[in-house]
Amino acid sequence: MITEEHVYGAISTVIDPEVGFDIVSLGLIYGVKVDAENNVHVTMTLSTKGCPLHELIQQWTRESVLKLEGVNSCEIELVWEPAWNISMASEEVKKELCG
């Protein structure tokens, strides 16, 4: 059985190359759902709407989830509300980025 924790662990390997932190620590993952058939739905955002790597980051996220043994499918839902801000990031990321 695939759990949300498994999915978050897989997604945490995806690094935003612009800032050098993983997208989970950055607070870009708003939710993960796994159904009974191990289909995964990830709700996420990006730091800006104009992010030049938005397609790649979504692809990397999908690929990281699909690498988990037993996952049947992975759907990425990109949302813009609530808008991302630095307060959503982990304490470690905030300390590094904000001093």
Rank of each mutant, 00 (worst) to 15 (best):
M1C: 07
I2V: 15
E4C: 06
H6M: 11
H6P: 03
V7E: 02
V7K: 00
V7L: 06
S12L: 03
S12A: 15
V14A: 01
P17E: 10
E18K: 08
I23E: 01
V24W: 08
S25A: 14
G27H: 03
G27T: 04
I29S: 03
I29G: 01
Y30N: 05
Y30P: 01
Y30L: 14
Y30W: 11
G31A: 09
V32R: 02
K33A: 14
V34P: 01
V34L: 05
D35Y: 04
E37P: 00
E37Q: 13
V40H: 00
V42D: 06
T43M: 12
M44G: 00
M44L: 14
M44R: 00
K49E: 13
H54W: 12
H54L: 11
L56C: 01
I57T: 11
I57V: 14
I57A: 02
Q58L: 13
Q59S: 09
T61M: 10
T61D: 05
S64W: 05
V65A: 00
L66G: 08
L68K: 07
L68G: 03
E69N: 15
E69Q: 15
E69V: 10
G70F: 07
G70A: 08
G70W: 06
G70C: 08
N72S: 12
I76M: 12
I76A: 06
I76G: 07
L78D: 07
L78S: 08
L78H: 12
V79I: 15
E81P: 01
E81F: 13
W84H: 12
I86T: 10
E92I: 09
E92F: 09
L97Y: 09
L97D: 11
